[in-house]
Simulated scan of single mutants.
Amino acid sequence: MIKAFLTSFNVLSPTEIDQFESLLIKRHLKKGSFFINEGKLSTEVAFINTGILRSFFSPESGEEITYCISFPNTLMAAYSAFITGLPTVENIQAVADSELLVIQKHDVDKLLETSPNWVRFFKIIAEQQYLELEKRLFLFQKEKAKKRYIDLLENQANYVLQIPLQYLASYLGITPRHLSRLRKEINL
């Protein structure tokens, strides 16, 4: 899956893709385990081979706010902390048993020095992250919860029902009770 993912960008040579793959470390996370905890330095990027991860933070109220859910075939990191080198303010947790392919930041930095293709590749990844964030922001401000839920179902139907109700409701910005009503309305 990682080879197909990297090839799909039409930027990296087969040798560069092999080089990237040689730097990956396979990691298994059990459901409920953490990829990173708040207050830690973000020194890794993970490709989600299987499973589902959620990013969340806890405001002073203590309530967990899930703001990102990531599915297989995507990259995941505490990006702002990865870029700045500061401790992260978020937690990344496995929602289901997950297999990750992890690369260290120092290896990413070395790759960036070896070829302009890596700079282009990581620029594309950064642009995609921005576009996803913008899409989520617009959906949140423009659409009702039902539309946001239907959009998620249309894009990730195989995985949505694996996500615990409270995490999914938080991600959609609604209560678990409201999400239960939406599911009944949509006949899930």
Rank of each mutant, 00 (worst) to 15 (best):
101 L>P: 04
62 G>F: 08
164 P>C: 06
181 R>H: 14
171 Y>D: 02
151 D>W: 05
63 E>P: 03
54 R>K: 15
81 A>Y: 02
166 Q>V: 10
188 L>S: 03
77 A>N: 08
169 A>Q: 09
153 L>M: 15
147 K>N: 09
186 I>T: 05
59 P>G: 11
29 L>Y: 07
23 L>P: 06
39 G>P: 04
77 A>V: 11
88 T>K: 06
148 R>V: 06
84 T>Y: 02
89 V>P: 02
69 I>K: 09
30 K>S: 12
58 S>C: 11
157 A>Y: 12
76 M>W: 01
184 K>A: 14
69 I>F: 11
38 E>K: 11
99 E>R: 00
6 L>E: 08
144 K>N: 12
10 N>K: 14
110 K>V: 03
12 L>A: 10
69 I>R: 05
66 T>H: 11
178 H>D: 04
169 A>D: 06
184 K>V: 08
73 N>D: 15
59 P>L: 05
161 L>T: 10
13 S>H: 07
70 S>C: 10
54 R>T: 03
26 K>P: 09
97 D>P: 01
19 Q>W: 01
84 T>F: 01
92 I>T: 03
110 K>D: 09
22 S>L: 01
104 Q>W: 00
119 V>Y: 00
77 A>T: 15
139 L>P: 00
162 Q>V: 02
158 N>E: 15
188 L>A: 08
103 I>E: 04
36 I>F: 06
75 L>R: 08
111 L>Y: 02
34 F>T: 01
177 R>E: 15
38 E>L: 00
6 L>D: 11
185 E>P: 05
57 F>T: 08
121 F>M: 09
140 F>I: 03
152 L>I: 04
44 E>A: 06
30 K>N: 12
24 L>C: 14
96 A>C: 11
124 I>R: 10
85 G>F: 07
92 I>W: 06
188 L>I: 15
118 W>V: 05
183 R>L: 10
142 K>W: 05
145 A>T: 07
188 L>Q: 09
113 E>A: 06
88 T>P: 04
97 D>H: 06
79 Y>A: 06
18 D>Q: 14
134 E>T: 05
35 F>P: 01
101 L>D: 00
61 S>T: 15
133 L>A: 14
47 F>M: 02
112 L>E: 02
39 G>K: 08
73 N>T: 10
113 E>W: 01
145 A>Y: 03
135 K>C: 04
6 L>R: 05
145 A>H: 03
162 Q>R: 14
8 S>V: 05
50 T>S: 15
129 Q>I: 10
186 I>M: 13
125 I>R: 01
182 L>C: 09
39 G>I: 09
131 L>G: 00
27 R>S: 10
25 I>M: 08
152 L>R: 01
107 D>E: 14
16 E>H: 12
49 N>V: 07
81 A>M: 06
46 A>R: 04
90 E>V: 07
33 S>C: 05
134 E>P: 00
14 P>H: 09
28 H>K: 10
187 N>Q: 14
